[in-house]
Amino acid sequence: MLTKKQKRNNWILVIVLIAASLFFLFPVLWMLANSFKQDAAITRDMNSIRAFVPPALKGNFFDNYVKILTDTSFVRYMLNTLFYAAVLIILGVIVNGLAGYALAKIKFPFRERWLMIIMLLMIVPMETIITIHFLFIAKVGLLNTVIGYVLPMIVNPFNIFLFRQVFVSLPDDVYEAAQLDHCSPIKYFFTMVLPMSKSVVATVSVFTFLNVWNDYLWPSLVFTSGDLLTAQIGLNAITSNDNTTMGQKLAVITMITIPVIIIYSLFSKQIVEGVVSTGSKEG
């Protein structure tokens, strides 16, 4: 039973935390409210509480959003990024999944040593070798191409290790039964192993998506111009254009965040599990 004093303290804590959370979120609230305003209104409201209140729902309410969607290549950049994410999820699950399965279940020479190497590779920060990646891609003439962007991002020691940890606990008798049915190992992998491990496939896919969506340095190096930009690099191109108003800038960053919020709300379980168990986001 809670005493009266404890109950009162609880409510004080709730109120303090609500106030703290509102103060904490003021940049986001300001962004949302002002993404619907014209620049004159943004400046006018700056010194009053109206800075956090969206304007009245009138005909030009979505003007900033419409302008961005129709006058810039923003939609194109968003679709590009979705496409890259889809390609990298498919290739990443296949390549890293097969490797993880080999390390978990197939007895091949130096298997333990490879596993050790994969674990050691997990501690190498990507920033160290990104210059060389850039040099490679530039030398073979793949700058500003989708292949040049995707190729270095497919293999991921962290994901190989993640797959391996899950596959190692798969039962062996299913494999033996499949062999009696003359099921080839490749077919077995795609029709049995992956479907049995939906959770890790989802985790790897979600983290690959977030990585592609949020990545900045690598796409900014590979994509020098034009139609292939990802959303984050396109954002830079749009906001550094002098014709873009402040309200439009806020509308762009709001729209870029929406897909990620959808992913987080759909897969919050996998993400929180991933965060809590590994604590590593970048991989």
Binding site: V95, A102, F108, I154
Partner: peptide
């Protein structure tokens, strides 16, 4: 071991 290298191969090349 052939199967292992076939599965591990693509990742190893990359």
């Amino acid at each position: 071991s052939l199967l292992g290298m076939a599965f591990f191969g693509p990742a190893l090349v990359l």
